[in-house]
Simulated scan of single mutants.
Amino acid sequence: MIAGIQAFGLALGLIMFYYAVKLYRQGKFKDRDFITWGSVAIVIVGVSVYPTVLDSVLSWLKIGRGLDALLVLGILGVYGFVFQVYIRNQETQRQITNLVRKVALELEQKGRKKNA
């Protein structure tokens, strides 16, 4: 019998995987994004369907309760994703800066040609 939280986790994982596949097919996800989010979705589905699988991992990590482990993993996961977003933001800012410099130089050259 599936508990309410298990049903919610299963639905969330399946929806996440559906959108990951959809965005990947539309070209809005890179390979790395699809692998990351697809894996997260599959893990959510797996843990939702088979929650006792975590017991061996929990005993190895010396964590007593499953909820504690999920909270710890959730917080670590959020930090990892925030770091990933930060890196991508820095790259995007660098690309915008280079583009603005290039456009400014081209406009300056066109202005000089007009005045000459």
Results as ranks from 00 to 15, higher is better:
residue 1 M to K: 11
residue 1 M to W: 11
residue 1 M to I: 10
residue 3 A to S: 14
residue 3 A to C: 03
residue 3 A to L: 13
residue 4 G to V: 14
residue 4 G to S: 13
residue 5 I to W: 13
residue 5 I to C: 00
residue 7 A to E: 08
residue 10 L to Y: 14
residue 10 L to R: 09
residue 11 A to I: 15
residue 11 A to G: 07
residue 11 A to M: 13
residue 13 G to W: 02
residue 15 I to R: 05
residue 16 M to I: 06
residue 16 M to P: 04
residue 16 M to T: 09
residue 17 F to V: 08
residue 19 Y to V: 06
residue 19 Y to M: 14
residue 20 A to S: 15
residue 20 A to E: 01
residue 21 V to C: 11
residue 21 V to E: 12
residue 22 K to I: 00
residue 25 R to N: 12
residue 26 Q to V: 01
residue 26 Q to C: 01
residue 26 Q to A: 06
residue 29 F to G: 12
residue 29 F to P: 06
residue 29 F to Y: 13
residue 29 F to D: 08
residue 30 K to S: 14
residue 30 K to L: 05
residue 31 D to G: 12
residue 31 D to C: 01
residue 32 R to G: 02
residue 32 R to V: 09
residue 33 D to A: 08
residue 34 F to P: 06
residue 34 F to Y: 12
residue 35 I to M: 11
residue 35 I to D: 00
residue 36 T to L: 15
residue 37 W to P: 01
residue 37 W to C: 05
residue 37 W to K: 02
residue 39 S to T: 13
residue 40 V to K: 02
residue 41 A to H: 05
residue 42 I to G: 00
residue 44 I to L: 10
residue 44 I to H: 00
residue 45 V to A: 10
residue 45 V to E: 08
residue 46 G to P: 00
residue 47 V to H: 05
residue 47 V to S: 05
residue 48 S to R: 05
residue 48 S to K: 09
residue 49 V to M: 12
residue 49 V to R: 06
residue 50 Y to N: 10
residue 50 Y to P: 00
residue 51 P to T: 12
residue 52 T to N: 14
residue 53 V to T: 08
residue 55 D to G: 03
residue 55 D to K: 05
residue 56 S to W: 09
residue 56 S to K: 09
residue 56 S to Y: 08
residue 56 S to A: 07
residue 57 V to I: 11
residue 57 V to K: 00
residue 58 L to P: 01
residue 58 L to E: 05
residue 58 L to I: 01
residue 61 L to M: 07
residue 61 L to S: 02
residue 62 K to R: 05
residue 63 I to P: 04
residue 65 R to T: 07
residue 65 R to N: 09
residue 66 G to L: 02
residue 66 G to N: 08
residue 66 G to T: 02
residue 66 G to V: 05
residue 68 D to C: 01
residue 68 D to H: 10
residue 68 D to V: 06
residue 69 A to L: 05
residue 69 A to D: 03
residue 70 L to Y: 04
residue 72 V to E: 06
residue 72 V to D: 02
residue 73 L to Q: 01
residue 74 G to P: 03
residue 74 G to L: 00
residue 74 G to T: 02
residue 77 G to P: 12
residue 77 G to D: 09
residue 77 G to Y: 01
residue 77 G to K: 04
residue 77 G to C: 08
residue 78 V to S: 15
residue 78 V to I: 15
residue 79 Y to W: 12
residue 80 G to T: 11
residue 80 G to M: 11
residue 81 F to I: 13
residue 82 V to F: 12
residue 83 F to I: 11
residue 84 Q to Y: 07
residue 86 Y to H: 15
residue 90 Q to W: 07
residue 91 E to A: 15
residue 92 T to M: 13
residue 93 Q to G: 10
residue 94 R to Q: 14
residue 94 R to L: 15
residue 96 I to Q: 11
residue 96 I to Y: 04
residue 96 I to C: 10
residue 96 I to T: 06
residue 98 N to F: 09
residue 98 N to C: 08
residue 98 N to E: 15
residue 98 N to L: 14
residue 98 N to K: 14
residue 99 L to R: 15
residue 102 K to R: 13
residue 103 V to D: 10
residue 103 V to P: 08
residue 103 V to W: 04
residue 104 A to N: 13
residue 104 A to W: 00
residue 105 L to F: 04
residue 106 E to P: 03
residue 107 L to P: 05
residue 109 Q to E: 15
residue 109 Q to L: 09
residue 110 K to I: 11
residue 111 G to T: 03
residue 112 R to W: 03
residue 113 K to T: 13
residue 113 K to Q: 14
residue 114 K to W: 03
residue 115 N to Q: 14
residue 116 A to G: 09
